[in-house]
């Protein structure tokens, strides 16, 4: 029961070197394979017809990236529990930093995500000492306002 609660809240306090030994190769491999697909992802973002006319099969690219994403996320989540909003914030920050080219965007947003998680975890451990706030709560505190901001700014764009 305790571990279910822990898993649902999400946190890094159960992390051990063993989990890193398992996770490290999986994450490195998936990021590497994703970066190999990066140019194709750029092309598919222009629309399926255009991608086809440029010699890229959109369905194949989508399937490959979905499988890789799922593999990476699922393996991490199974060790740390659910930590929300990192994936919402970090790609946006990365895109603001270096632009839309996925060849650079994918590694950059992985790094931004890692930094974000580390900072949130540190903050969570320090703020209410000696009690530790799980990192999932801290990222939600950051993520919800960010989410609302995106919601409002997108709506403004649609309504002109």
């Amino acid at each position: 029961m305790r571990s279910v609660v822990f898993w649902l809240m999400g946190g890094l306090n159960r992390a051990t070197w063993e989990s890193i030994i398992i996770l490290f190769p999986i994450v490195i491999l998936t990021i590497f394979l994703m970066v190999l697909q990066a140019w194709n992802i750029n092309v598919v973002s222009m629309g399926e017809d255009v991608a086809t006319s440029l010699g890229v099969t959109p369905k194949r690219v989508l399937t490959v990236t979905m499988v890789l994403e799922t593999l990476a996320t699922a393996s991490i989540i199974s060790f740390t529990g659910v930590i929300g909003f990192v994936c919402l914030i970090s790609p946006h920050i990365a895109r603001m930093l270096i632009g839309s080219d996925h060849r650079f965007l994918i590694p950059c947003s992985s790094l931004v995500g890692a930094c974000l998680l580390l900072c949130s975890d540190t903050v969570g451990r320090l703020v209410l000492q000696p009690t530790e706030i799980p990192v999932g709560i801290v990222t939600s505190l950051l993520g919800v306002p960010f989410f609302l901001y995106i919601l409002v700014s997108r709506r403004r764009r649609i309504w002109g």
Binding site: L36, A38, W39, N40, N42, V43, M46, L54, G55, V56, R103
Partner: peptide
Amino acid sequence: MGRTPYIHW
């Protein structure tokens, strides 16, 4: 992106 058929990565 028009060069896609000719470039790999």
